[in-house]
């Protein structure tokens, strides 16, 4: 299929982007990497009146260390992030997750910000952001704001981003030395969205477990986190029954997904041990 007609504007500045979005409201869609949006356009499942192309915005690029955080610009391509020394050093969980995203041709184009903004419940990066306790920088008609990952993912493809908002960057707290990271997912084929996945980190005091592919958003498993912080893996696995209630999808039942989530937790646990 071919897309329905739409108009297109390539904005030159963030301010211009915000104005364009404000003018067109819900009729406008931002295009960054386009790797999720263009399939929807091609299938006529999305029909915006106008695409606001933000690819020319230099202020959305770059990876930098700011204070205690690693700031990754929204327009950083996933392939660029894969090669980033800063990310490998300060956000090793993201470095572990990146190769699982689609295929290299997708990562050459797909952006960090786009993946977070779309918030596909089976995607890797939203779960990483959640596990890392990161933040999202947003620019909107009413100015700039920062939203914690825990508050960002609302429901299926629903986030704290409003129609006029632009996701500017994500911020990841630079981890303490004793922080351990674990990432794994189970996908039928290399590059597919996961049937179940887990992004996790743990230091001496606490653990954060963000599961993906098992609900309508990436999900923290807080009971399991508490059990794991106490040092009981078996209990953590057992209480996942209460943390997660995965719905059935065409590829597997919720029961299978829950079983896979438990298996992932068992498998990742050694990586999380100090």
């Amino acid at each position: 299929m071919k897309p329905r007609s739409f108009d297109y504007v390539r904005v030159k500045s963030l301010a211009e982007a915000v104005i364009a979005l404000a003018r067109h409201g819900t009729e406008a869609k931002i295009i960054a990497g386009g790797q999720s949006l263009v399939p929807l356009l091609n299938m006529r499942m999305a029909s915006p009146a106008i695409l606001v192309d933000i690819n020319a915005l230099a202020e959305l690029r770059g990876i930098s260390l700011e204070g205690g955080s690693l700031r990754i610009g929204a327009l950083v391509r996933q392939a660029e992030a894969e090669g980033s020394v800063e990310i490998a050093k300060h956000a090793p969980l993201i470095a572990k997750a990146l190769p699982y995203i689609g295929h290299f041709a997708i990562r050459n184009r797909g952006t960090i910000g786009g993946s977070i903004a779309l918030a596909d419940p089976a995607a890797e990066l939203p779960a990483c952001l959640l596990a890392l306790g990161g933040e999202v920088e947003i620019e909107g008609a009413k100015g700039a704001r920062t939203v914690k990952a825990d508050d960002f993912f609302k429901d299926l493809y629903e986030t704290a981003l409003g129609p006029g908002d632009v996701l500017i960057a994500i911020r990841i707290p630079v981890p303490s030395k004793d922080m351990r990271f674990g990432f794994s997912e189970l996908a039928r084929r290399h590059g597919d969205f996961a049937m179940a996945g887990l992004a996790a980190c743990r230091d001496g005091k606490s653990a954060r477990l963000a599961f993906f592919g098992v609900g309508s958003t990436p999900l923290r498993a807080k009971k399991a986190e508490a059990a794991l912080a106490k040092g009981s893996l078996e209990e953590a696995v057992a209480v996942l029954d209460h943390d997660l209630d995965p719905p059935d999808d065409i590829h597997s039942s919720g029961k299978v997904k829950l079983h896979l989530a438990k298996t992932l937790l068992r498998r990742i646990a050694p990586e999380l041990a100090a």
Partner: peptide
Amino acid sequence: CIYDERGQLLNGNMADYLVPMAGE
């Protein structure tokens, strides 16, 4: 090709209908 009881094909696209790829 997964159909529901109403005769709707549920996975009629290449993301959901899994063909063999090189990796596996």
